[in-house]
Amino acid sequence: MLIERGLRVMNVDTIGKSYDIAANYLRRTGAIPDGTSTHDPLLELIVRLFQRGETHPIRLANKAISNFESAKIAA
């Protein structure tokens, strides 16, 4: 499904799959808390990476995980 947001078109399915993969991994490692609510910083990171051109769900999730963990280490 495509949703138009201004001039950008986002593939909700790709972003959703990527978020599910990344969130599942990060919850299992304890990097984000367990719960049913969406972890907004992770979702925002995935959307930014998607907007930069990464459209493959697994690569998108892997980049998001890497960036998320790097930001946590630097913090």
Results as ranks from 00 to 15, higher is better:
E54V: 11
T36S: 10
R8D: 10
A71Y: 12
I32W: 03
R52Q: 10
L2H: 13
G35P: 09
E54F: 05
A71H: 12
A31Q: 03
R28S: 12
L2W: 15
Y25E: 00
N11D: 14
L49T: 08
I21M: 14
R48V: 13
I65R: 11
S66Q: 10
N62Y: 08
A23Q: 06
R8A: 11
A64L: 00
V9I: 15
T14D: 05
Y19T: 01
L43A: 09
Q51T: 12
A31G: 00
S70Q: 12
R5Q: 13
L49V: 05
G16V: 00
A74H: 10
G30I: 03
T36Y: 08
I3C: 10
N24I: 06
I21G: 01
G53P: 04
S70W: 11
D34T: 08
P33F: 09
A22H: 04
H56P: 03
I58M: 12
I15S: 01
D34Y: 14
R5I: 12
A31V: 11
P33C: 07
H39C: 06
V47F: 04
I21S: 08
H39F: 07
R5C: 07
G53I: 06
L49W: 03
L42S: 05
R27F: 06
D40P: 07
A75H: 09
T38Y: 12
S18V: 02
L60Y: 05
A23E: 05
F68E: 11
A31W: 03
A64T: 04
D40Q: 11
R28A: 14
A74I: 15
T38I: 12
S37L: 12
T14C: 08
L43H: 09
A61N: 09
L60V: 01
H39L: 06
A22I: 02
A22C: 05
F50N: 03
R52S: 09
A23T: 01
G35D: 08
I3G: 05
M1Q: 12
A23S: 13
D20A: 15
P41H: 02
V12P: 07
V9G: 10
S66L: 08
A71L: 11
I73P: 00
S18E: 01
I15A: 05
A75K: 08
N62C: 09
S18A: 15
N62I: 03
T14W: 06
R28K: 14
G35W: 09
K63V: 10
Y25G: 00
H39M: 00
R59H: 06
T38C: 05
L45V: 06
L49Y: 00
P41I: 07
R5A: 11
V47K: 07
G53V: 04
N62P: 03
A22Q: 04
R48W: 03
